[in-house]
Simulated assay, not measured.
Amino acid sequence: MRERRTAQEARRAREFEAFVAGAGGRLLHTATLLTAEAPDDNPRARRLLTHALAHTYAYWDRLRGEDPYNRAREELAVRFARGTWHRYVALPLPWARRGPAPSGALAGLAPQQRLVLVLRLFEGVAEEQVAALLGLPGERIHTICDRATTHLLHPPRGPAPARVRPKAATS
């Protein structure tokens, strides 16, 4: 009995390792886009991915034909949503962990906009699935995605340059 259980655990570990070897890079890229960190300096994205993969591994035996990539991506999105929305809505706490400042094109977007945009455009998740995952109406997801896309394509301009008054001629 113990040998059979050990063999099952070893098979499970091999299957999960193969999954991570194949999908880990893309999931890390998705997490990096969500956190808007630089690809070479992304501790928040790595931590987010580690937690999502740990949850996926714990759920591995119950997948029963479900795509493990979808499961890991959903866990990644839910963890990002919970972590960032609570963190950005509340006042910043002095003991809260701080990572590198967001950078790149997605840094100007709000966390919710980044999440919807990455799921819809980078991951190709249907609008209805994103709505169900985040518990928002489909129309709201459509609006968030449109606004985020518009913000990326047409970023807001900075303040207008100061008007310089010509010097009065003295003669």
Rank of each mutant, 00 (worst) to 15 (best):
Q113Y: 03
A169E: 11
A45E: 15
F16D: 02
P43N: 14
E3T: 03
T170L: 11
H29D: 15
R64T: 02
A160N: 10
G124C: 13
A10V: 12
W85L: 14
A36K: 06
E3I: 04
Q8M: 15
A101L: 07
L119S: 03
E66D: 11
R163N: 02
D61R: 11
L152V: 09
R2P: 01
W95G: 02
A160R: 14
R14V: 00
H29E: 15
R114Q: 10
T30H: 01
E75P: 06
L63W: 01
V130F: 00
A162Y: 02
L121A: 14
A23M: 07
W85F: 08
R73H: 04
H154P: 00
I141V: 14
H142S: 14
G158R: 14
A110R: 12
V78A: 07
L76P: 13
K167Y: 06
L76A: 07
T6D: 15
A36T: 12
L76K: 05
A52K: 07
G99S: 09
R4A: 15
A77D: 13
A132E: 15
P92R: 15
V89M: 03
L33P: 03
G22M: 01
N42K: 03
A110Q: 12
R44S: 13
R71T: 08
H151F: 02
P166T: 04
W95H: 09
G24F: 09
W85E: 12
C145M: 08
L91R: 04
R46M: 10
R71S: 06
L121D: 15
H86T: 13
A77N: 03
V125K: 11
V20D: 01
R73W: 05
L115T: 07
A21N: 11
A126C: 03
E15K: 11
T150D: 13
L134C: 07
R120G: 07
A90R: 08
Y57T: 03
S103W: 01
W95V: 10
R82D: 10
L34A: 09
E17C: 02
V125N: 10
T143Y: 04
A31S: 05
Y69W: 15
G135S: 12
F80I: 09
P100K: 07
L33A: 08
P161S: 12
L33N: 02
T50N: 00
P39A: 00
P92A: 11
A105Y: 00
T150A: 09
R120S: 11
R26P: 04
A160C: 05
P161V: 12
L121C: 10
L93V: 00
A131R: 06
P156I: 03
G138R: 04
Y59P: 03
P159Y: 07
E15F: 02
A18V: 01
G83K: 02
W60P: 05
A18L: 11
L76F: 13
W95S: 07
H151K: 09
M1R: 15
A162H: 03
H51V: 04
V118T: 05
T32E: 10
E9Y: 05
L93F: 05
I144S: 04
A81C: 12
R2L: 13
A110E: 15
L115I: 08
A58M: 05
E17A: 10
R163D: 10
R12E: 01
R157L: 13
Q8W: 12
L115R: 01
R11D: 03
R79A: 14
H29N: 06
A169F: 04
G135N: 12
A162F: 00
L133Y: 01
P68S: 05
V89L: 09
E3Q: 14
